[in-house]
Design a protein around this nucleic acid. Structure first.
Lengths: 349, 349
DNA sequence: CTGTTAGCGCCTTCAA
DNA sequence: TTGAAGGCGCTAACAG
């Protein structure tokens, strides 16, 4: 450790003024190459590094993004996707010289209090939210207080794509399930069942739509037939198993199943004893280790999109009166990870 | 938003000097009550909040703790425990007015580079590491450069408890497996098998010891018999299933099994078709949703310990010449979460 | 292209 | 108990 060298030390060592050093760092093209090199040499020689707080004080920006760590989901295996998103975000933020600051909250009001605390204390100058809905008090507060933010997930309002105030990035779940279903159909399956969440969740309804469209186009089944191939469940392995049994009872033969989550898929797989292919969603470690196919969200792309929106033209904030020229929303396509099937379960029988 | 009020604004509003405001904030007992109240009123009225960067610049401390987000573990379900630890840490740090800053690294050297960057830039003034070993280059670098840090996990050196330079908090895995094994023995099981990792990992060997000791004391089996009840595997569901089959082949009857991880436990459970009780480790969401017992790490306690060590007497750093009076290490006991058994798997048969 | 000057908002001396 | 200076390390304006 020892005392860190300051910009003055570097200036002295290089025989220039402090300002020139600052220029070398922040506007290199404005300094004559030979001077620049001399300064650079002094910097590396002394091991100088700009003092983050001093810079932030001076520039009035923290270059730090706040993100809330969700409360633990006891059930459901899908908690890990947030983890992976966070990882992607941190990694890419780092490349843009942005830092990620964590916080927790016990509920929406508490979260708003945290927004206030972190923004007013200049700890953070933007937020990333992970799941929001239309009329969410949190986004309303952020918009109202002119805070920069981008959400991972659509607000699921009437007209998301046109909403100029709420920047978001989301994964096209409809497309994902359509692809999964189509894949199963090309494999020879015809009666592909669907295990989803109860109607009402934007995400779940969107994914269901993907299955429905693919089936209408490719299965040759009518709507009445399709209705028996569909069943709703809460998220959880036991719920998935239960749903599978209900599905088999209602539909008679089922050639394959697509699910809105890996937890449900695991349950379905177990209940079916591994006899038919099951496709999950999120491509969690369980899917990988048990060996069933799953729709993977491209979290790197999502993270990149979030950062671009945040650092882009509007800097995550909408300037009133600005024309909506550049995209404020981004919908990325997931991809299907195809796996052979569950060797473990088969072996267990 | 708008411009945040500064300390001067508050001073003007309250009719005092800036200094008095500062005192009200940092040394309230030195200001006359009535003045204090007037200032407090002005603070809340104006919505004043001290500027974090300004304070950090002045005090030369960031009050921020850096933690590396581990690369994603594709296999193994246990990734979520780090998640929960991070959550506990963030929550408790917040109460102490400390912030958690994330970073990622591609490997040990890169991580050291990050240490350097973050510490020299005064972004962070302490680190939390999540898994270290004896002679780990990262801890060596941190010690050498006088950086504050605490690890979650023993260094697994010869004499951990006496090492005065490396502060750590860990979970007593030996105790955890002993408890799990004893529980199974009291339930009536006698031949309790053990599925562990290959010898050599400190954590794994420690947990194995717990099983071994409990069996020696309570099973009435001799060492020769015990040897057939033990099998090693990498971490993963398929590995667990495979291990279970090997175990049954080698040992003949097995009444129950304890495993060093939930992934292994899940595999074992499936291979055994849910016929015998299996106990896992980490109490991950899978254990909860499938419904098997598991040893839970008390991550809240770990987080609390880490922060206490960090903010305690030595502030995470060892002052040379200081007597070793207060504890520099902390070993917390996990607890067994008992569950009925896997209804899903039983039903699937 | 380089140097000088003037703070960013806060806290730590010291004096009153 | 309160007030008046000074400076933490940096960068944005200018002036040379």
């Amino acid at each position: 450790m020892g005392a860190q060298p300051t910009i003055s030390d570097v200036a002295d060592a290089a025989g220039v003024s402090r300002q020139t050093v600052s220029n070398v760092l922040n506007a290199p093209d404005v300094v004559r190459p030979e001077t620049r090199e001399r300064v650079q040499h002094a910097i590396t020689h002394l091991g100088y590094r700009p003092h983050a707080s001093a810079r932030r004080l001076r520039t009035q920006k923290s270059s730090t993004i706040g993100i809330r760590l969700d409360p633990i989901t006891t059930d459901g295996i899908s908690g890990s996707i947030l983890d992976r998103f966070l990882h992607a975000l941190t990694e890419q933020a780092d490349r843009k010289n942005l830092r990620m600051l964590l916080f927790t909250a016990t509920g929406p009001e508490d979260e708003i209090a945290q927004f206030q605390r972190l923004s007013e204390g200049a700890d953070v100058d933007a937020f990333v939210l992970t799941s929001t809905f239309h009329g969410d008090p949190r986004t309303e507060w952020l918009i109202e207080h002119g805070q920069s933010f981008v959400t991972f997930g659509r607000p699921w309002g009437i007209d998301d794509m046109a909403d100029p105030e709420h920047l978001w990035v989301d994964v096209d779940g409809c497309h994902g399930l359509r692809e999964a279903t189509t894949h199963l159909l090309t494999t020879g399956a015809r009666r592909v069942g669907f295990i989803g969440w109860p109607t009402g969740s934007g995400t779940g309804d969107d994914r269901r739509r993907g299955w429905l469209e693919a089936m209408r186009e490719g299965s040759g089944l009518g709507d009445a037939g399709l209705r028996t191939l569909e069943v709703a469940a809460e998220d959880g392995v036991n719920d998935g198993a239960d749903a599978m049994r209900r599905l088999e009872k209602a539909a008679g033969t089922v050639d394959a199943v697509v699910c809105v989550s890996d937890s449900l898929a695991l349950g379905a797989l177990m209940a079916a004893g591994g006899r038919i292919p099951v496709v999950g969603y999120d491509n969690t470690p369980v899917a990988a280790s048990i060996g069933f196919s799953s729709v993977e969200q491209p979290l790197d792309e999502v993270a990149a999109g979030v950062l671009e929106l945040l650092t882009g033209a509007h800097g995550g904030r909408v300037r009133p009166g600005t024309e909506v020229t550049d995209p404020r929303h981004r919908l990325v396509a997931p991809r299907l990870v195809v796996r052979e099937g569950p060797s473990v379960i088969a072996a267990a029988r």
